[in-house]
Computed example of a mutant assay.
Amino acid sequence: MYCIFSNFCFAGYNIVSKISLDKGMSRYVLVAYGHAFGTLATALLAYLFERNNKSKLSVAILRNVFFLGLLGAVLGRTLFYAGLEYTSPAFASALGNLIPSITFILAVLCRMEKLDIYKRSSQVKMLGTIIAFGGATLMTLYKGHPVISFHSQHSHQHTTGSKSVLLDKDLIKGSLMLMVSYISLSAFYILQTITIKMYPAPLTLTSLTCLSGTILSTIMTAILDHKASSWKLSWNITLLAPIYSVCF
């Protein structure tokens, strides 16, 4: 039930993020604000429920927290928003089916999961991985016929030739960005699993990860987006997007 609920949240997250990006919000600022708000929210939860935590932070754990911020915020979320700008929420959600397959492959390579080709469970996982990658390739490269068009046939004939090549390039570019983003997020899950065994305090670890993502994404924003106006939040979708990101 938790997993089903989280997928509903993920679908809404794609839509809200897409609208905010189309409204002109910087993808870099959205990442920074989302992780900053997430740091505050999870820090409060960690204080309420894990203040008696006796686990100690070590250099190895702090190193992992740094890479969790790098994989989750800088690479994962930033590239996800970039790919979302070139595609659509439905397309990004569909390609999101790659995450379990990529995570499974990385888990096998990291020897976190055993692969026995003679076992039915391993055969099903391999088949699912092949189908997921095949579906992602099909969605990226295949261009179907329009089902519903709000333009006349005459205008469609004039605009299709000039725009189809650009749209195809944008779709492929966005797909590659999304795939790299999902690879980063899969690596994030693997590293998160390793780190939670070293530091069994999930809320505190989440807060530290968000803090790492906030620092790294803020540095990235300062380098790539020099406009101070990009940080301005209004009482519209630009405020809803990072708040929804916190809940997600």
Rank of each mutant, 00 (worst) to 15 (best):
F10Y: 15
S230E: 11
T221S: 12
G83R: 03
M220A: 08
L171C: 08
Y142S: 03
I196A: 07
F8T: 01
H151E: 12
Y142R: 07
A82D: 07
I183P: 02
M179H: 05
S26R: 05
Y33P: 09
Y81V: 03
Y13V: 02
C210L: 14
L205C: 07
K197I: 14
R63D: 14
L109Y: 08
I105E: 01
A222V: 10
F8P: 01
Y47S: 06
H145C: 10
V16M: 02
V180A: 10
L178N: 00
K18F: 14
I117N: 12
M220V: 11
L71A: 04
L45T: 11
A228T: 11
M198I: 03
S184T: 11
M25Q: 14
L166M: 13
S152A: 09
H151Y: 13
F8I: 02
S149W: 04
H226K: 05
R77E: 13
Y199R: 03
V108T: 07
F66C: 06
M177W: 15
G213E: 00
A43L: 04
N52P: 06
L44R: 01
N236R: 13
S149M: 12
R77W: 15
I99Q: 14
D116M: 09
I183K: 02
W231N: 08
Y33F: 10
M112A: 11
L171P: 04
G144W: 03
T160Y: 15
T129Q: 07
S55C: 07
F49S: 04
H226M: 05
T159A: 13
M25H: 10
Y189K: 04
T218V: 15
G76P: 15
S234C: 10
A82F: 08
Y189G: 03
R111T: 09
V29T: 14
T137S: 14
L70W: 03
K114W: 04
I19D: 12
K227P: 08
S26V: 09
Y86K: 09
R51H: 13
K169M: 11
I15T: 02
K143C: 05
I237W: 13
V108C: 14
L141A: 15
L176H: 06
H35E: 03
W235D: 09
T218I: 14
F188D: 02
T103A: 10
E85V: 13
S186N: 05
S184I: 06
A241F: 08
L239A: 13
I243M: 14
K163Y: 13
K125F: 02
F49H: 12
R51I: 08
V108D: 00
S184E: 08
L185Y: 15
A46I: 02
G34Q: 01
A222R: 09
A107K: 09
V180I: 15
I131F: 06
A41M: 13
P202L: 09
P242H: 04
I219G: 01
